[in-house]
Simulated scan of single mutants.
Amino acid sequence: MSETEFGFYLKKARESKGISVNQLALESGISNAQISRIENGLRGIPKPETIRKLAEALQIPYEEMMGMAGHMPDDRKQDIPAWATSRDKRDFKKMLEEDGEIMFDGIPINDTDKQRIMDVLTGFFWEAKQMNKRKKPKDSDNTKE
């Protein structure tokens, strides 16, 4: 989904609830200027933490809004390895949510290229996690004689 499509979705969701931009700003903690830029397609797809705030303020399921934004679709959730612990999953979620817009030469990249990059990062993340689990802890019995 493009930022214009997501902005249209957000605006329709807000209007269907009978909420003004200013009311949504107060409820979500997101500035009215940022909400306006999102709705008008002048800002990229928001980060998951922003989407969570908007979803809660609009009383829309977070997963629905994330899906509309194109973040981590359901068919991607199966990419999480069976061995991943809840702590691993938390680390992965944090990595994804803390990333800002992906830029190249100061220009935001398109959604297709962004998804390719996220796919590669996902693979690297889980590979690194698995390799880290295989490492043996260093011998803590280093006693001096």
Rank of each mutant, 00 (worst) to 15 (best):
E101I: 10
I30K: 02
T143C: 04
I80N: 02
Q34A: 02
R90E: 11
E64K: 07
G106E: 01
D139L: 09
K135R: 12
D88Y: 01
M103C: 05
W83P: 03
Q115V: 07
I19M: 15
M118S: 11
P108H: 14
D105P: 02
N22W: 05
T143S: 06
M66G: 08
G123S: 11
T50H: 02
H71R: 06
R14W: 00
G70M: 09
R90Q: 08
R90L: 09
S20E: 08
E64C: 09
G123A: 14
R116N: 15
L58K: 12
M66H: 03
R76I: 02
S31C: 00
K12T: 09
L24H: 03
K133G: 10
S140P: 10
F104E: 08
D99V: 04
W83Q: 11
K53V: 00
E63M: 12
F8K: 15
I80M: 09
G123E: 04
P81V: 11
I51Q: 00
N22P: 02
G70W: 06
K89V: 03
E63G: 11
S28R: 01
W83I: 05
K47P: 05
D111G: 05
N32S: 02
R116K: 15
E145D: 15
S2G: 13
A84P: 01
M95S: 01
Y62D: 08
D91S: 02
I109L: 07
S2Y: 06
A69F: 04
E145W: 04
D119C: 10
S31E: 00
Q34P: 00
K12E: 07
M131I: 04
Q59A: 12
W126I: 04
G100S: 13
P61Y: 14
E64T: 14
I35N: 00
S140Q: 12
A57V: 05
Q130C: 03
